[in-house]
Amino acid sequence: MGNNKGWLEVITTRLIIISGYSAIIFVFLIFYFLLEAGLPTIRNVQLTNLLGQRWYPIEEYFGLLPLIIGSITVTIGAALFAVPVGIAIAIFIAEIAPSWARNILKPIIEVLGGIPSVILGFLGILVFAPYIRRLLDLPTGLSVFTGALLLGAISIPTIASISEDALDAVPRSYRDASLALGTTEWQTIWYVTLPAARSGVLTAIMLGIGRAFGETMAVMMVTGNAPVIPSGLALFFSPIRTMTATIAAEMGEVATGSTHYQVLFMIGILLFLIELVVNITASTVVIKQRKRSERILS
């Protein structure tokens, strides 16, 4: 029987090792696949066309600028809204709320994070967009602002939940020491607990932003998908088209191997690279922070 157990153990270990490595292999395979399908764009489409301001693929206008600017503005909008709210929720749950409220709030936040974005998109199209149009007297409610609100709502649970974990992990002694020095509760949170949890909170923000940037369905439903480059104050209140929505909306129709298909994969490569930069920034910040805190503790 001992033999039997050893045999099972070997298989289980192997399976775990394989699944561990498969994550790395899959990332490389996906990137290779994207490169193979997307890189011919550079040969087949003139650079001036790719950097142009007009996206109308069925007539060979492949200007990526409106899509990139669209994705970035709507993500910045979402971050402006979601970061303060998400961190405030985390601080409330971790530091201020009584334990019974904490036990209710934390699971609720996590359930919120699991709501499919299509459902939020429906809410956006039927409730938010009409309301925002009337409230701000815009030509249409299908705009960056509505998109940013929804994306914010989608990334708040990520930011709140991970920040709360980070705040929760700050040793009790930090707070006690601070309070013993005569600070108020607010000063302790702002100057001691939050800085101590900084690396976790930064990770939370980066993950939240990554989630917002990669979100597809909800933005496709509420941002109007007009590939324009807005300027001035209109930037946050005009319709816009994001990179993700473009891929989702057009990939179904496109003929495999056509120029349009290659350009869509090019957009995929750009998305991949931008998300990669966000993740690398986040993890280097966290590693730096960790080293510093380890030094302090030792």
Binding site: W55, N225, V228
Partner: peptide
């Protein structure tokens, strides 16, 4: 016109 809203569904157009 580039500022034409491109909606992914008939329902979206009717709703707006």
């Amino acid at each position: 016109s580039p500022d034409t809203l491109l909606l992914p569904s008939s329902e979206g157009i009717i709703a707006e």
